[in-house]
Design a protein around this nucleic acid. Structure first.
Lengths: 213, 213
DNA sequence: TTGATTATGTGGGCAGTGTCCACATGAGTG
DNA sequence: CACTCATGTGGACACTGCCCACATAATCAA
């Protein structure tokens, strides 16, 4: 009897998870507190015991996404130690494949639906952590003479922008066409390798620069 | 008597423009067909004579944004002829300052709220035009030996990603902090020059590459 | 054990929304 | 003038977020 869902139980987490399900299926605009409560099998007012607003539920869902993102970041940071280029590319790849797999969640996280200053700092930290990791990676890469010199913050912001941009293009479907038409193999791993190849090309421009010489 | 707004008139364009006003003030989620109709002074069903859906009104508003964007693009393309780097930077600057001035409109245009394949191709063209312009600029820059060689489409996609990423960071307020705290001069031109300086720094990383030499 | 307090879930209700419907009105055309 | 068609009107329905008072289960003090 793990989940004592009789009359009480682990709501809140149920709300968040089925919320994310609905998010993936019907987009941010298609989310309804009442419908979530209905499918969980609970009164239409139960969610208000765990979230003050619909907005707060959305923030909790986004926070869940940020948390997963950060967990993976730190794993990659260890896995590719002493390979800053690998660290950065794999981080980018992770964000981008998340944008490909769960475009709506990505849109919720980065589309301006969330105002980090509203919720109790909990979310703001999660969102900033990625930035902190990036700065650290850049700094390490500069020490190893892999990345160019200069203000690490500026370099990190540029890198973040590039990653976000790629992810946005993927999540909004502007890149999907090209790597879907090629994809005879429609399995997840198939799509993943194609996506990887494409991002590799596009990210290389960023690493080496658009200008000549 | 330009606007015969008595019983008939130029609705549709009124709907779009006051729609954009509401968008700027209250965000995408805060837009209500009924409220728009109410403030225009028209029945709550009048909009349905011009748009099948709320969605279609949103698309029309986004299309308006795309149109303005493209108009500026072609102007810049002429103004900075034979200066591909200038063309690209000014294009980026334009997108980004739009993201700064009207973050909600920008979010509507690129945040996944619009499915270009839905509306009658009219919007899809407007959105793709920017891409076409970029490819042309890149090609010209390659001819002038300013940009590196390689598939122009790939280079254009990278550039587009970088621009989008910067714009997203600005519109979602992740960069606002830094260039607002510095801004003693809070006038539009003041903010604009600060924004310009910041983007210049960040974009330079993209032009020269993150890697060392 | 018992009794009170707190956390959690329930139903009713209200204003507001998007969308469908039948109807009204006005402009334009034969 | 009559007819048609584009455009605008009010009514209605299901649905939503959120507020209220109330019910129930868990927790804890005595």
């Amino acid at each position: 009897m793990e989940q004592t869902n009789y009359h009480h139980g682990n709501l809140r987490s149920s709300l968040v998870s089925t919320g994310i399900e609905f998010l993936n299926q019907k987009g941010v605009a298609g989310i309804s507190l009442r419908e979530i409560a209905r499918t969980i099998g609970v009164g239409h007012n139960a969610p208000y015991r765990h979230f003050r607003n619909k907005q707060q539920l959305l923030e909790a869902m986004a926070e869940d996404g940020f948390r997963r993102l950060k967990a993976r970041y730190t794993r990659l940071e260890l896995e590719f130690a002493n390979d800053p280029e690998g660290q950065i590319f794999e981080s980018a790849m992770h964000v981008i494949s998340m944008a490909a797999d769960q475009p709506n969640l990505f849109q919720l996280m980065f589309g301006g639906h969330i105002q980090p200053q509203d919720c109790g700092g909990n979310l703001k930290l999660a969102a900033d952590d990625a930035m902190q990791s990036l700065v650290a990676i850049i700094r390490n890469g500069q020490r190893l003479k892999v990345f160019k010199e200069g203000d690490p913050m500026t370099l990190a912001l540029s890198t973040m922008s590039m990653i976000q941009g790629l992810a946005i293009m993927v999540s909004s479907g502007k890149l999907k066409v090209q790597f879907q038409t090629q994809a005879k193999d429609s399995s997840w791993t198939g799509r993943q390798t194609l996506l990887r190849a494409m991002v590799l090309q596009l990210f290389d421009v960023f690493l080496r620069g658009l200008k000549r010489s």
